[in-house]
């Protein structure tokens, strides 16, 4: 259930996309226990300083040329990489996409949150904090409780990590309430991610599987991405002084494990899977259910879908 730091560290990390024609991160390189993870924010680990300096110098040299080359060569950008056509269910069609045409078809991850199932147990929250070493006072995921009163007001509270039942959240008189439900929040892994768009140094990048990641060895800590994320997902990690956020446990999912929150959820309210595989549970659920995304009007095209959202949820 709750993975230790070491097990998180023993994961492979994604590479920066081919924008600058460089392999910035050690894709698939196993990280030593509690050690480096290529500087990618996928387990909270950092590369050693010497490593970082060496890599910076070689990266700097190549990137100067890389960025010039970019202006000349029609290369694939991270944005286009992230714009891999979505399977039919996400494009509004009712039928799942046909099986992958070839083995080379890129993996594309997606997420579904079923708010009708969530009981506010908070298990996902503590699992995430342990797995990703999230510093106190910051969150990669959280659960909101919505209470709609008969007088039209809506009360929203944050479910603590101990779970709703252990919490001191105000007990509401059921006679006054129309409806109440829990909404787990996590990174939407937007296809058109504003956090990625605004990053001035390309430290925010899209993995080949469409997951937004941060190169913590390259991030200058300007906080622009924190401002740009409409969902309040990003923060500057006070330990690394770099931007940080939920990565859908990239270090786990690339090893065919589920994200820690998904594994910890006792009621299956969080569903993670492959959008490119029509046989995955996720694709089937998305095909069979009416879903919504958050703040759709902003055009971020989240890959996180919700079942049972009310318009009051933002």
């Amino acid at each position: 259930m709750n993975k230790s730091h070491d097990s998180a560290g023993a994961s492979g990390c994604g590479s920066r996309p081919a924008t600058s024609g460089l392999n910035i991160l050690n894709q698939g390189t196993p990280c030593s226990g509690g050690g480096s993870c290529g500087g990618v924010s996928c387990g909270g680990e950092q590369r050693s300083k010497a490593d970082s300096r060496r890599q910076f110098l070689s990266r700097a040299t190549s990137m100067v040329f890389g960025s010039f080359a970019l202006t000349l060569l029609p290369m694939e950008s991270p944005e286009t990489a992230a714009e891999t056509p979505l399977p039919a269910p996400l494009n509004g069609g009712a039928v799942p996409a046909p099986p992958a045409a070839s083995a080379a078809k890129p993996v594309l991850y997606g997420f579904l949150v079923d708010t009708e199932k969530c009981i506010g147990s908070g298990k996902c929250l503590s699992a995430c904090r342990t797995e990703n070493h999230v510093p106190d006072g910051y969150s990669r995921t959280w659960v909101e409780r919505y209470v709609h009163f008969k007088d039209g007001t809506v009360q929203v509270d944050l479910v603590p990590e101990t779970g709703y039942h252990e919490s001191k959240l105000p007990i509401v008189d059921a006679a006054l309430v129309d409806k109440a439900y829990f909404v787990p929040k996590l990174c939407n892994q937007c296809v058109d991610a504003p956090c990625n768009q605004v990053c001035p140094v390309h430290a925010s990048f899209t993995s080949p599987e469409g997951v937004e990641l941060i190169d913590t060895d390259h991030c200058i800590g300007c906080g622009y991405c924190v401002q740009a994320c409409p969902y309040g997902m990003r923060y500057i990690n006070p330990e690394t002084n770099s931007a940080d956020k939920c990565t859908w446990c990239y270090h786990r999912i690339t090893k065919n494990q589920e994200p820690a929150c998904v594994e910890a959820c006792p009621v299956g309210a969080r569903v993670f899977g492959r959008l490119d595989d029509p046989e995955s549970e996720l694709s089937k659920r998305l095909g069979a259910t009416r879903t919504q995304v958050l703040k759709e009007h902003l055009g971020t095209h989240p890959k996180l879908h919700y079942v049972g959202l009310s318009k009051e949820v933002v």
Binding site: S20, F56, R59, A60, M63, V64, G66, S67, L70, E79, N196, Q197, V198, C199, P200, V201, H202, A203, H218, C219, I220, G221, C222, G223, Y224, I236, N241, S242
Partner: peptide, 17 residues
Amino acid sequence: HHPERALNIMITPHQTS
């Protein structure tokens, strides 16, 4: 938060930012 990396903004500029 990482002033020592400030020059990254000119070494690896992100065209969309």
